[in-house]
């Protein structure tokens, strides 16, 4: 139960902070938010929690806010700025992953060697989760951008674009994440259960995010 409460708090806190940065720093705040949330979710996904007796990795709450931030940008700036945003995400994730992996390849000092050994152990056991998170979010964002933008062109209703695109890209994103992290390591039943619960939680967070896009859109009119 504590995990569910913390997850709700994490989502609310992230959305409030996203709106705060958008109001205070405009697009700059959104760009920074997307990259920072992306890196944070990649780090958080190494920890596993249990919800309803189903094992799942963390980072769901904060990674969902990336898509909402992205949709706020599409609403305001259209598709052009999103390309720049994707290049930004890829560049920063390359720097992040390279430095992280390089840190694991260095000769340990004799001082506090247990902590350093634990660090290496955690890093190499978690690389697949970090990479899975990065790949799945980048692919998910690409799919989201395309669907959201097309729906917006047909009918400029925020709730239709957001919910419809969320239903599709979340499936793609969760599928990629689960395939990379659980491939050959858990039974099909466990994998399917994790997939379903991850998908449902993400959809709920993203549907709640529709309200955040509306609020951000109102900021735009006032600013």
């Amino acid at each position: 139960m504590i995990n569910v409460i913390l997850l709700i708090f994490e989502v609310i806190f992230s959305y409030v902070f996203l709106l705060y940065t958008y109001k205070k720093y405009k697009e700059d705040g959104i760009y920074i938010w997307i990259v920072i949330a992306f890196i944070l979710s990649s780090l958080m996904c190494i920890k596993h929690i249990e919800i309803n007796n189903i094992n799942m990795s963390l980072g769901i709450g904060i990674s969902s806010t990336i898509y909402i931030a992205n949709n706020i940008l599409i609403q305001k700036k259209g598709n052009e700025y999103i390309k720049n945003n994707m290049i930004m995400l890829v560049t920063f994730s390359i720097i992040f992953v390279c430095l992280l992996i390089l840190s694991g390849g260095m000769i340990l000092s004799d001082f506090n060697d247990i902590t350093s050994l634990t660090y290496d152990n955690i890093l190499f056991s978690s690389v697949k989760y970090i990479l899975a998170n990065i790949i799945s979010i980048i692919v998910g964002l690409y799919v989201n951008n395309y669907i959201y933008y097309q729906l917006r062109k047909i009918k400029n209703k925020i709730w239709i674009s957001n919910i419809m695109s969320a239903l599709i890209f979340t499936f793609v994103e969760v599928m990629i994440f689960m395939l990379i992290t659980n491939f050959n390591s858990s039974s099909l039943y466990v994998m399917m259960m994790s997939l379903v619960i991850r998908y449902v939680i993400k959809i709920i967070i993203l549907i709640l995010g529709t309200y955040v896009i509306y609020i951000a859109n109102n900021f735009r009119e006032r600013l």
Binding site: Y31, V35, L100, D113
Partner: peptide, 29 residues
């Protein structure tokens, strides 16, 4: 060069995060 001032701000925060993670590793060079 790629992302102007915004990029530098993100890099600042990214390096802060990495420095927190790297705190746990002592090396010998």
């Amino acid at each position: 060069h790629l992302f102007n001032k915004t990029g530098l701000k993100i890099l600042f925060i990214l390096y802060y995060l990495l420095s927190v993670i790297f705190l746990f590793k002592n090396v010998n060079v």
